[in-house]
Design a protein around this nucleic acid. Structure first.
Lengths: 192, 192
DNA sequence: CAGTAATGTTTATGGCGTAAACATAGTCTC
DNA sequence: GAGACTATGTTTACGCCATAAACATTACTG
């Protein structure tokens, strides 16, 4: 029978081609201007032009899709941090990755939240063996005077940037670039 | 007609008595072992023994109920912090309120999250004019060498405890009492 | 080219938030 | 006290959601 329309129209085939990737793309796009809880499988399916239940051929449930999106988010966050580190002078890299962390959160609120809402579930920690983790560890090791000291620095540094990001996202602190710079200041934080 | 059963039974009256308070109580109870997104108006109504839509006589919508719960949460958090401060020696009070903040989050995960998810929406900041805010400000002022310095200390201190709380709640850091003590240490944080 | 696995669709179920219309019971006035 | 008003419930209904089951179409593999 007719397989492909001879017109220039998109030619809706029965099979989508790469529905999984299309759903992930649509999901990431949706998260750019909607909160996590407003994201619905049916809506995504509609946007991609597929039936509501087609999603389940690629993801066992909604959680799985959100996890995939979260994984993507982790990648993007790591890239942002790496780029910031490379662009900064060596002595400022520790602080630069922190600033990048907060700025990423402010630029991608829903995605940032998703990362922490749906990565923990899989048992893995966000920075399991990621690039960001190694960077953080490296910078902390330069400053730490002992292994314990280094561990403490890592936790404190992560806590500061994460807390700053969350408080700004939740409207508790002004989402202000100057405030980020003030708060993430290795001279005043950690005494050095 | 028969108004009240002569038996010792609860005597289901048409009017509940104080449905609003009952719903808030049920909501707070539900948040003790369920996540925010699993909390449903219908379920609460069922638990209180009332029709699904009775809720709307006391709250315009679900948001409003959640906001009421969040307000309650803010109160409880402030109380926990105040109690911790009073129990600590003066020089340790700053850190003690911080530890109380994180411990409260770990003890009441859903409620803690709710505070920040549903207080920002009303435009107000969580610690608007609260006790906790004044305590934090007081302690920071003792340490800050200038108004700017004090402001910075407040932001950094809040960010550290909030970040620590969130990362632990999200399973990114072990929800460990020892780690709380290590991370919130005024000697290593803020250089003194 | 046949058969099977992969991928979509249709249909159905039960839960949800919420609006509208209706019922009951306290309260307030004469 | 009697009647009206208002507060507080209930019933019913709508449209959305996630998800399961059965069925349809296509792609792939021998």
């Amino acid at each position: 029978m007719v397989t492909v329309s001879t017109l220039n129209e998109p030619a809706r085939a029965y099979h989508h081609g790469d529905l999984r990737a299309a759903l992930v793309d649509a999901g990431l796009a949706a998260l750019q201007d909607a909160a996590i809880e407003d994201l619905s499988l049916r809506q995504l399916a509609r946007e991609v032009g597929v039936s509501a239940t087609a999603v389940y051929r690629h993801f066992p449930d909604k959680r799985a899709l959100l996890s995939a999106l979260a994984d993507h988010g982790v990648e993007l966050l790591a890239q942002a941090q790496q780029a910031a580190a490379q662009a900064a002078p060596p002595e400022d890299r520790f602080a630069a990755t922190g600033r990048a962390y907060v700025r990423f959160a402010l630029a991608n609120p829903a995605l940032f939240r998703l990362i922490f809402a749906y990565t923990c579930a899989s048992g893995e920690t966000v920075f399991g063996n990621s690039l960001a983790a190694r960077m953080l560890q490296g910078h902390a090791a330069e400053r730490g005077q002992s292994p314990d000291d280094t561990r403490r620095l890592i936790v404190q540094a992560w806590a500061v940037v994460h807390g700053l990001a969350m408080l700004m996202l939740d409207g508790q602190l002004p989402a202000d670039d100057a405030l980020i710079d003030t708060a993430i200041n290795s001279r005043t934080l950690f005494g050095g």
